[in-house]
Each structure stands twice: as C-alpha cells, then as structure tokens.
Nucleic acid binder design. Sequence first.
DNA 1: GGGACAATTTGCGCTGGCGCAAACTCAAGA
DNA 2: TCTTGAGTTTGCGCCAGCGCAAATTGTCCC
Lengths: 233, 233
Amino acid sequence: MAALDRSLISRLPLFQGLTPDEQGEILRDARSSRYAKETAIFAQEAEAHSFFVLIAGHIRVVRTTPDGQQVIVRYISEGEIFGVAAALGRTTYPASAVAAVDCVVLAWPNALWPELARRFPAFGATTYRTVGSRLQETQTRVVEMSTEQVEQRVANALLRLANQTGRKTDSGIEIDFPISRQDIAEMTGTTLHTVSRLLSKWEEKGIIVSGRQKVTVKDAHRLVVLAENRDKG
Amino acid sequence: MAALDRSLISRLPLFQGLTPDEQGEILRDARSSRYAKETAIFAQEAEAHSFFVLIAGHIRVVRTTPDGQQVIVRYISEGEIFGVAAALGRTTYPASAVAAVDCVVLAWPNALWPELARRFPAFGATTYRTVGSRLQETQTRVVEMSTEQVEQRVANALLRLANQTGRKTDSGIEIDFPISRQDIAEMTGTTLHTVSRLLSKWEEKGIIVSGRQKVTVKDAHRLVVLAENRDKG
DNA sequence: GGGACAATTTGCGCTGGCGCAAACTCAAGA
DNA sequence: TCTTGAGTTTGCGCCAGCGCAAATTGTCCC
C-alpha cells in the first residue's frame, strides 16, 4: 500500500464521506496487485474470494455463453468498485473481469465486507448506490436491445464510451483504451462485420475517425442524432 | 395490518432470520393497500417515496421508451420486495409497476429504510441478495438478447414464467395470471405476431396449450430443448 | 342473448443485418 | 527489412422476423 498514492485514492468517490483515518483503516486491509493487459482478475463461475477497486487502467467485464459466445457486460473505469459478489450475497462471480490494459487493483477479502459495511456505513451506501445504477444501466440495455436497431445501439455505445472513458484530443474525443470492432460488437449484440461497415460509413461522413483498436468521436452531436433516430438513418 | 395474515407474512423469505418480535416491529411501520387489476403502484420517473412487498397478486414492472414502446423488465410474485430505489440510493423509480391482477401490497416510507437496515441487518442482507440476483438475471437477459434467436428467447421466457409463477393443473403447468401475446413480446424483444406464430406452432406439436391471455406448458422438456437449440429449431 | 371490442391468428412481401469468404493493412517481432 | 498474424474492410446472397392488413374468435357488458 505504501507505494500507492494515498491522496489519489482518498479522492475516489468510493471514499467520500469518510475521514482520512477511516480511509486508512479500510485501506489497511487491502492488497494491491498489477494485472498485465488481457489477463483475468477473476473468472466467471469462480468462487468469489474478494472484491476490488480499480486504481489504474480499464477492465472489461465479460459473460461467456455455454457455446462460447462472449458478451461484454460493461467496462470498469478508474476508481470504480467491482466484483462485489459478497455485498450481494453471491458466492461466485457472475462474469469474468479482464484487464483491457495493464491495471492496478486493490482487493479486499470478501470476509471483510460485513464488518466494513457495518463500521463504515458511507462505504456500504456508496457501493449500493453503484450497484443501483448498474442495475438501471443494465435494464436500459435490455430496453435498447429490445427496441433499437443496430445502428442506434452502436452509436449509443460509442457515446457512452466517449463520455465515460473519453480523452479529449485536438481531433475529438478518443476512447483511451484499445477497443476492437469485435469488442464493440460484443457490447451491442451484433457482428464485427456490421460494426466495421457502420464505422466506415461514419468515418466517410466525418463523424468519427478510427483505426486499429481505436475510435475517436469527432462529432458527438451527429452521433446523438443517429442514436435517437426513431427509424431510418 | 391487523386484517392481514401474520403467519403468512412471517413465512416470507424476506423475514427469515428475524424473530417474531422483530418482524412485528418492522411490520408496525408498514401500510397495506389494495390495487385493482391494471392500476399502477408507482410510475417510472416518479419521486420514490416508498418500497414495497407484494402480499398477494402479480405485478408487472415496465419500462417505457421516449417514443412509447414498452418493455417488461420482470414480473414480481408473492412475497417479493420491489421498488427498492431507496436501498440503492435512487430518488426516482426507474420503471413503472402495474398490478397484473388485483393485488395486496405492503408499503414502507423510504425514510425508514436506513433505520430498518441498520437495526435489522438480516432484513437488509436479504434485500441486497434479491437485488444481486436481479442484477444477474438482467445481465442474463442482455446475453440472451445478444446471442439467441427469437424462438429460444420466447421458449426461455415461458419456462421462467412456468417455474416462477406456474400452477400445476392436470393438463400441465399453467401461468397463473393473465398474460397476452403482446406481454410475451414485450418480455422477449419481438412482436405479438411472431409470438402468436410460435405459440401456434408449439400448440400443434403438443408442447403447450394456450388461449386468451393464458398459456399452459404441457411438455417443459421439449421447451427446454427449443430454448437450448444452438441454431435451427 | 346479442353487440362490441379486445385479443389472436394468419397471409404476404420486404429488408436489416448476418454468415461466408476473400482481400487488405497495419504493428510488432525476428 | 521482412515476415507473420491479428485486426479490419468489403462484396454477395440469404433468411428470420418485422410491418401491414384482414379475418377470426372469445369475452364482457348491456
């Protein structure tokens, strides 16, 4: 822990409402680790032993179907808590977590959750607030999958990525971790071919620029229009 | 409260791990009400004032899109807690709840949540366990929407309904509340026409029997096969 | 008992997007 | 510099499932 930047950590939303002393007490029980790009933090169906906070990097949460198809449930950004099976009374992880880039992660043993939640209600409340918004987001995604066309869903996905993990550059908002056409397809329930065709079309129109595992949104406004289009684009 | 059957209520999973005294204390703050078929318990986007337990009946949780399309998020069965916005730090309900049949419901003011959760940890834990399985279910639904064909999704939906709210009759497992083709379509992201065609086909094959707002599963096993079919049925 | 409406069924034509396949293009390592 | 392989692009054909429309059936209410 000593090696990590305490001031950075104490600024995380997760620790808001806690005194520096309390923060220290919570952090004392954490173990920090590094995960190289494309390695797993935990695997779907595995016995849940810990919960985590992402200190640096980006994490992909993935569900794999019995026949091997993958669906990206969400991306985790810096500062977010994840793998909170314990807080929700689960004994296994419902999905896998994979480092999208090299990552630094704090981990607490699940056994500590009840005590931490009891002694630091603000800590528990923040976690449950996060869970609440994830439940809502996931429901929104079901609604999108049910009612929107592929083009709208891909536009929405890019907008979300740009908002959550976008980095402003002089040519637009760049998604600041490597993301392939295949990844975008797995987020939106389509195929890499269809994503590729859409991105090509949008690039022609000047709405985005994209390269290998890279997308930059140049004209978010027109992307919003595409995402909202009731029927034909 | 006096009018309600206490022994029935104390058998609910939600109250497990609590002494009769504690149960009484929690119930003292509840208000019970009836909702006629097709009336709303709460509306999407409305200020969240209470959380609820369904004592009798069946409730449909629905999200409506800006352009008026509806998606059924889930059905609530007897004994389940719902509308728990408070426990998740939300101030509005993310969806509407509508009585699918005449219902009896207990309601607690949201303001009581923090105290109840603090004084009766088992109560809070059970609630969060429920939230956890709902998050997982919802994710499963995203995966299904992303990877399965309509036929498999409808088969899965019927199986789930049969398991959760099925009533055994001599002709099979009957879903014990009125459910239309349109409802099934809104649960599976398709149209009532397609649902109707599928049900007709399955009825011909003797897998189900169905009528107006009524479905009875006769051969769950063959339905499972349909639900699992990797590609063509 | 009969009218009126809501739910369901079914036919038909169309198309969004998938599956397959092949070509192309970077980026990194040898 | 050259090789290699992963990521991407693009053409082509097809079909699951939607949209529209019309007929039919069951239910509730008067």
